[in-house]
Amino acid sequence: MQASSDTSSLPEPSTHAADQAADQDLAKPSSLPVTIVGGYLGSGKTTLINHVLNNSSGRKYAVLVNDFGELAIDAQLIESKEGDVINLSGGCVCCSYGNDLISALMQLDTSTIDQVVIEASGVALPGAIAGSLSLLSEFKVASVVVLADGSTVKQQSTDRYIADTIDRQLVSADLVLINKTDLLDSLQVEQVKSWLRNSYPSARTVATRHAEYPVGLFLLDHPLNHIDRDTASGNGNSHTTSIYTTFTLEANNNCDVNELAAKLADAEPGLLRVKGFARNLKGQMQLIQIVGKRWTVQPAPSGAKEGLVCIGLSSDKLSSESVSAILGSV
């Protein structure tokens, strides 16, 4: 095993086996990955969705929203709007589903889409949406991202009316984004973070502002080679200030890929995102995808090369050695 560590600049795309493969014309998977974005009213879901729509990087996303209300799509991107559907240049489509998400999903033309993103309503339970999705064979849940307003979530968690809704939303998350941390001081951020990490251990928890979280870190097919650029106000000068640490691990040995994926997903300090290829014990190349704490393994497209891109928070003092050790243990 070898690992390269890079906390100050992101590796060139050409060195990324994973992104190379992802950028190739992959054989269409049998079911489309669906990312569910949940969280209470005002937690920043729509802001996150706006980042997706305005930073699609050539991917064709179908974004389903409860309402068009606060969507801020760059006007130049809008090709047409008809009733509940907005078509964007580049192939993305945005639909408002009102109270009938399942019908909206069934009406999607899945042949023209790479990935689906669902914005749940502020009181919807993302776990229940994931349960319903399991019945639609054209779709599979890729991740459940739940946003929490860092300045109000603790208070909401004891609110007479919504406490159990907040809890049921968070408990289903693979990834919790504590948003609006600009309204808190650093001590408060740490307090909310540790409370959420202790209360909802089945999710990774990350602090954000203005829902600035790189699209590639929560959508499966999004490129990972410029994660610091692809949020709305992210700028390209973050090489020296990156809050993310990226490793590329060369996974050269055959291993139990499921066990590897599960261990990487659970590792502490935590990885936020893993994507890449490894061979299973039979020597077959497999695609590993991890978002938050949810991992999936599926057969890799032909031409894929071993290698895993692992991304975590710089502040978590991730070391390539500890991650490599996981690779060595399976």
Partner: peptide
């Protein structure tokens, strides 16, 4: 268990 809200109190 208790049921579901179909609207948030603030809305």
């Amino acid at each position: 268990p208790n049921g579901l809200w179909y609207i948030a109190p603030e809305q």
